[in-house]
């Protein structure tokens, strides 16, 4: 059987999720044994402009050129994976949507701002149909391997739709609220094995919100610890600003 043709494409992002592929180590050679990577600009000079079995998309859609490019990729890809927070939920690029675009362009580029067009930051599924989502900033390698296996077998992958708290409890972390800081694990999709809290930091919500957050429970927590709502909403906007686009 011919190996499926896979390509990586990057849009507005830090390319850290692509780098996570290199971080798989020698195990990468096993992955490469079952797929045929035909384009991956960050590490390969080879290019491919024909049909693709799998397109892996990193980054957000932030300008008219990107909209056209993602549409063309979608047309020639049988399966399209949104890969990393910038692609799945807009990620940190979404913070730009808090500002007037002329204002933010002038702030960064001064009088030359007209050279640098931008438009509202979108997640990939807000521009084209997405078949699989690999969340996270950066992506969590074990989850990516699981998704890749599902893609190759042609079966669906369901992102966990329960909060990070579930995994965090199993990891026996002391709750960040009990350590007197505000954490977004209560409303954020699990699947990262509570990566940040395991390392003493808080959850920033990089995997996106669960579809049915326990709002009442979350509000009780905020009341109990005397945390103002706008602080939480502001934190939410670091990664999840693009959820407002529909």
């Amino acid at each position: 059987m011919e190996k499926p043709k896979v390509a990586f494409f990057d849009f507005a992002c830090c390319e850290g999720c692509q780098l996570q592929v290199a971080n798989i180590g020698e195990g990468l050679l096993d992955v490469l044994g079952s797929i045929d990577v035909v384009e991956f600009r960050e590490v390969m000079s080879e290019k491919w402009d024909k049909e693709l079995d799998v397109a892996i998309i990193e980054g957000s859609i932030t300008n008219p050129h990107a909209v056209e490019r993602i549409k063309q990729i979608r047309e020639r890809a049988k399966v399209l994976i949104a890969y990393g927070s910038c692609a799945t939920i807009g990620g940190v690029n979404g913070m730009k949507n808090n500002f007037s675009f002329d204002d933010i362009r002038k702030y960064v580029y001064g009088d030359s701002y007209q050279f640098f067009p931008t438009e509202i930051t979108k997640a990939v599924h807000q521009a084209v149909k997405v078949d699989y989502f690999v969340n996270g900033c950066p992506i969590y390698i074990p989850e990516f391997i699981t998704v890749l296996k599902a893609v190759l077998q042609g079966i669906p992958y369901d992102v966990p739709d329960y909060p990070v708290c579930v995994e965090c409890k199993l990891n026996e972390n002391v709750c960040m609220y009990d350590r007197e800081v505000t954490c977004l694990g209560t409303v954020t999709k699990a699947g990262c094995n509570s990566w940040c809290i395991n390392n003493g930091n808080i959850c920033y919500g990089c995997r996106g919100m669960v579809s049915n957050p326990n709002e009442k429970g979350a509000q009780d927590v905020l009341t109990k610890y005397k945390i103002p709502m706008d602080l939480v909403l502001n934190k939410m906007n670091m990664y999840n600003k693009c959820r407002e686009i529909f």
Binding site: T62, M95, K96, D103, R105, Y107, Y109
Partner: peptide, 23 residues
């Protein structure tokens, strides 16, 4: 594609700067 990081930092807490600029 420009991502306007310095612009986006305005209004955020200094305790978030490292998390954002790492990106």
């Amino acid at each position: 594609a420009p991502r306007f990081f310095e612009g986006m930092l305005r209004g955020r807490s200094i305790f978030e700067a490292q998390h954002i600029t790492s990106r």
